[in-house]
Design a protein around this nucleic acid. Structure first.
Lengths: 315, 315
DNA sequence: TTGTAGGCGTTATCAG
DNA sequence: CTGATAACGCCTACAA
């Protein structure tokens, strides 16, 4: 291109204030540089860290992640999947809120690059980045046993929306069967709700009064665990002397902040690094977009257990 | 349309598995139903709640909010603004990380509907939904005085990226001038960093040893306040007997969870309802899109102060 | 080196 | 009521 033409062009661009339209470009090129990211519930710290990890990867790769929030509504999730695909996204990163997900399976079968974040779905092997479920839970339970707690109780919110919750539930049952040699593990499950007053408190009072030895409780996630601590402090129970408390921590923001250490007496947890799940799943999706023929991949992060005072009966 | 034609059409749609393309539709109709939402730092609980509020409004209005994360990088923010506009968004909701923002001003002048979330920018009246700054801070300081604390110190992270931080800084200075009758208010500002070890602890140790009477500290936001509590607990200072602690709480998830009450001894705060800021700013943007001629609007939420043990020296 | 024609998938318009 | 055609703005390819 001659210098003269270049200048003329440049002038015209200036004059007419020309801005290329990505919409038209997408239509023509069939490439949007857009990635659809479906988040089950964006209002939790788990999602914040997840999203943060995801953005960091796509930003430096020149892709624009579009985040949408299903608010735990499987219906909405289906609609968003269709919407994003019809908007020409080149791939989908899905932190799903529906364990059964035929639409997503269909899309992936048709060749759309899909990676799941954290939560698996039923009957189909997607690419996925998640965290190990069984090992950390059984470690927690071994630890409780070694500290002399009696059989722990598992407090969980409704299982249906989160496959991870179900897996944790199952892992808990297996673990107390093996480690505590319990015959009727289902007896140690407590379905609760955070938004509804009194349910948790009722269960906790029963456990505190009827347990032989020192009881312990395990929250299915950070929200539930904090809720348990809240209720126990209102009841006036002393942790860990009256009752032990522990659970997974899916609220980590890297090392920046440590809620489980701040809330006295310090809560025993294992950390799910959601920012890392975000980063790795985003990278995996990029790999798949670049090389659509690649093998299915499942990555399992290995959480480490952090023992704090809330489960220390002995020394 | 005849029933027969309808059936035929329906069959063809089935047969060819026809899916309309929103990209092409946007190109033709010049309407995308897309809203660009620019978030300064998506990894904070403030942003989670903000996003959650924003999604709820757009979802029920049939718009799709596209969230992008600037990670406190003003450069990235500029790029995203251009990107989203060229992608045909019908409006922009901006939680900006640059106090000076000529690009955004230009867009808005050209008729693009823009609403700011939480953070104002310099020298231009945008539509904005935010929270009152001066009144709650001066109330906190009056409260500290009435409890017998000596002049409080203000701990803040770097001011440049957040206009709200600057405003709080200024409000603090004005307030201690008026309420404590301080001649040199700047002396009571401490610039700190959470990611860098030791700075905060050094300042706190100085304050604890050199203050006449009982000192108090005010964090510029939740992160800083929690950091202060962390460091104080490591130093071994007793709150509020050795030192009072308070600050704004921009981490509220409605009533669901109450960190400030959980962290003993209970922290005095005022709550910034970021989900409400999200909802109201989204609604405002929809109003503007529907009626582009409307007057500029600025909404200021009024936070309420919640007094807890961390600032109660007297009874 | 520069200019022009065709088509991406819609929708709007107009003729049959 | 139905079917054909042009245009949205860009990109590619080919012709001048």
């Amino acid at each position: 291109m001659s210098a003269e033409t270049r200048k003329r062009l440049h002038d015209i661009i200036k004059m007419t204030n020309y801005k290329p339209s990505d919409v038209a470009r997408s239509l023509k090129s069939q490439r949007s540089r857009l990635i659809g990211v479906i988040i089950s519930d964006i209002s939790t710290p788990f999602s914040s860290a997840l999203i943060s990890g995801i953005s960091s990867v796509f930003d430096s790769a020149g892709y624009v992640p579009l985040f949408v929030n299903c608010n735990n509504n499987a219906q909405k999730e289906r609609a968003f999947i269709r919407d994003l695909v019809s908007r020409g996204v080149e791939g989908l990163l899905v932190n799903t809120c529906s364990y059964e997900n035929p639409d997503l399976i269909e899309m992936e079968c048709k060749g759309l690059p899909v990676v799941l974040c954290d939560r698996p779905v039923k009957d189909y092997n997607f690419n996925i980045v998640t965290s190990e479920v069984v090992h950390p839970i059984s470690s927690l339970i071994s630890h409780l046993k070694s500290q002399g707690f009696s059989v722990p109780y598992f407090f969980t919110q409704q299982l249906s929306s989160s496959s991870v919750r179900m897996l944790r539930h199952d892992a808990f049952i297996d673990s107390i069967e093996k480690i505590y040699d319990v015959a009727d593990p289902i007896e140690y499950i407590r379905n609760t709700r955070i938004d509804k007053q009194g349910i948790t408190k009722k269960y906790l009072n029963e456990i505190l009064t009827q347990t032989q030895g020192t009881p312990a409780v395990l929250g299915s996630n950070t929200m539930t665990t904090i809720h348990l601590i809240n209720e126990l402090s209102q009841i006036g129970a002393k942790i860990p002397y009256d009752i032990g408390v522990c659970g997974p921590d899916d609220w980590s923001w890297g090392q920046q902040l440590d809620w489980a250490g701040l809330i006295l007496p310090g809560i025993t947890t294992y950390v799910i690094e959601s920012d890392e799940i975000g980063r790795q799943s985003a990278k995996l999706l990029l790999d798949i977009i670049r090389n659509p023929q690649s093998e299915k991949t499942a990555v399992y992060l290995k959480p480490e257990i952090i023992i704090r005072s809330s489960t220390l009966l002995k020394g």
